[in-house]
Design a protein around this nucleic acid. Structure first.
Lengths: 230, 230
DNA sequence: ATCGGTATACTTGTCGACAACTCTAAAGTA
DNA sequence: TACTTTAGAGTTGTCGACAAGTATACCGAT
C-alpha cells in the first residue's frame, strides 16, 4: 500500500475511553503493517508511548487478542497481523454472517431497512464526490452493520461485534486503495451495494444469497490486487 | 432444572488466573439462573464476594460482556442471561460455524481427525458408565472443538473462541439434564456423535451437511424440553 | 402533597506500587 | 572451550487509592 493511514479517525473515537483509543490505534498500526508480524509488544513500552498507565493498555491488548491480531503469551504479546490469508479469512466470516442474516430476512418486511440502505448509499455517493475516504468507509461499514442488525439475532450480532472494529479498520485501508484506483472503481463499489439492495428488494431467498455471495467474492478479488503478497 | 451445578469444575480452572476464574463462576451463575435476568452487578460487590480487588473482576465483566451475558452500562452491569431464545440462538451460531467448517473438510484427509473423534467417543462412553457428568460434557465439548480446529481457519477459530466458554458452560448444564433423563438418553447422545463421524467418513459434502444439520436440530429439541419457558 | 435542588453515597476509569515469575546474559567451573 | 549456576533486568497479575461522574434520597419551598 502506498500511503497508509497513520492515525485512527478522531471522529470515530468520540466517546471512547483510553483503553478503546489505544486499541484502535494499535489495531490500525498492526493492520497497515506499521507494527510488523512477529513483533513483541510490552505493556510497559506501550503505556510509555501513549503516556498512560498500564491499565488501559492491558485492556487494549486483551481486546486485540480477542480479535486475533495478537497472541498473549507468558511474557509479552506477539503480533500476528493481517496478511493476505487473514484478510481472506475475514471475508469468509463476513460472508458467513451476512449470508446467515440475509437468509433470515427473506420472509420479512424489509421496507424500512431498504429505505435506510438507500439513504446510506446516497451518503456514500456524497462522500465519493468530496473524496472523503473516512466518511465513505464509515458509510460502507454502516451499510453492512445495518443489514446485520436487522436480523435481530442477538448471538449473531455478538459475533459481528467481535470483529466489528477490525472490519472497520480494514475497510478504512481498503477504501483508501479503492479511491486511489480512480473514480470508476469507487462507482463500482457503490454499484455493488445497489445490487445488494436490489436483491433484498426481490424478497427471493435464492437471489439474495446469490447477491451476497457475488458481493464478497468480488470484493475480495478487488482487494487482492492491492495486497502485499506474503 | 432440578439440581443445577453450583460451582464451575475446579479441574477446568487448572491454570486459570483470578479474572478467568471469576468469569467462569459468574458465567455459570448467570446461565443456571442463580443470578437472575435484570440483576445489576457492581464491581465492588463482586470483588468483595470473591475476596479480590476490582482488577480481576473488571476483566471478568469485560469477558462476560463480550460473550453477551451482561451489558456494561455507565453504572453497573445488567445481567442479560440465557433464556430459551438465547439458547436457540447459540445453537444457531454453533450450527453455522460447524457447517462452515465441515463444508471445508469434504475434500480433505480426515483420517487423523476421525481417529481422534472415535477416541473421544470412547471416553464419552467411559464417562457415561461412571456417571461422570463433568467428564462427559468435557469430552462432548472437545469433540466439537476438535472438528472446528481441524479446519485450520484462524478467523473462524476466533469466533469459536469467543463463545467457547459459554458453550462449555451450557453443555455442562445440558449434560446434567441428559443424565437425569436416564441411560437411554445418554446413549442417544453418544449415538448422535457417531452419526457425525459416519457422515464425516463418507467424505460426501451433502451427507456431512445433512449430518450436522440433523445433529443441531435434534440437540435443540432435546434441550427445549428441559428449559424454563420464558 | 408535589416539585426542585442539594448533599451524599456509590459507581467507574485510571494510576502507581509491589510481589511473583521468566527470560537473558554474564560469571564461574570443569 | 563448553556447561552450569547465578545475578539481573524485564515482564505480568494483582492490589489499594484517588478523581470524576451519576443515581438516590433527603430537605426545603411552594
Amino acid at each position: 500500500m502506498a500511503t497508509a493511514t497513520n492515525h485512527f479517525p478522531a471522529a470515530w473515537l468520540k466517546s471512547a475511553g483510553l483503553g478503546e483509543t489505544i486499541a484502535c490505534e494499535l489495531r490500525l498500526a498492526i493492520v497497515n503493517g506499521s507494527i510488523p508480524h512477529g513483533e513483541k509488544l510490552s505493556e510497559n513500552r506501550i503505556a510509555a508511548d501513549f503516556g498512560t498507565s498500564r491499565s488501559p493498555v492491558r485492556e487494549a491488548l486483551k481486546t486485540l487478542s480477542n480479535e486475533g491480531l495478537i497472541r498473549l503469551e507468558r511474557m509479552g504479546a506477539i503480533v500476528l497481523g493481517m496478511g493476505a490469508r487473514e484478510i481472506q479469512e475475514l471475508y469468509d466470516v463476513r460472508y458467513t454472517i451476512e449470508s446467515f442474516v440475509q437468509e433470515r430476512m427473506a420472509e420479512r418486511d424489509t421496507g424500512a431497512l431498504i429505505r435506510l440502505l438507500e439513504q446510506i448509499i446516497d451518503k456514500m455517493e456524497l462522500a465519493a464526490k468530496h473524496r472523503d475516504i473516512v466518511e465513505f468507509s464509515y458509510r460502507d461499514f454502516s451499510f453492512h452493520e445495518a443489514i446485520i442488525a436487522e436480523a435481530k439475532h442477538n448471538r449473531m450480532m455478538q459475533l459481528w461485534k467481535s470483529i466489528r472494529q477490525l472490519v472497520m479498520t480494514v475497510m478504512l485501508l481498503t477504501t483508501e486503495e479503492v479511491f486511489a484506483q480512480g473514480e470508476s472503481k469507487v462507482a463500482a463499489v457503490i454499484g455493488k451495494h445497489r445490487t445488494i439492495v436490489a436483491a433484498l428488494r426481490s424478497n427471493d431467498s435464492a437471489q439474495i444469497q446469490q447477491g451476497v455471495r457475488e458481493y464478497f467474492a468480488d470484493s475480495y478479488v478487488t482487494l487482492r490486487n492491492s495486497l502485499p503478497e506474503d
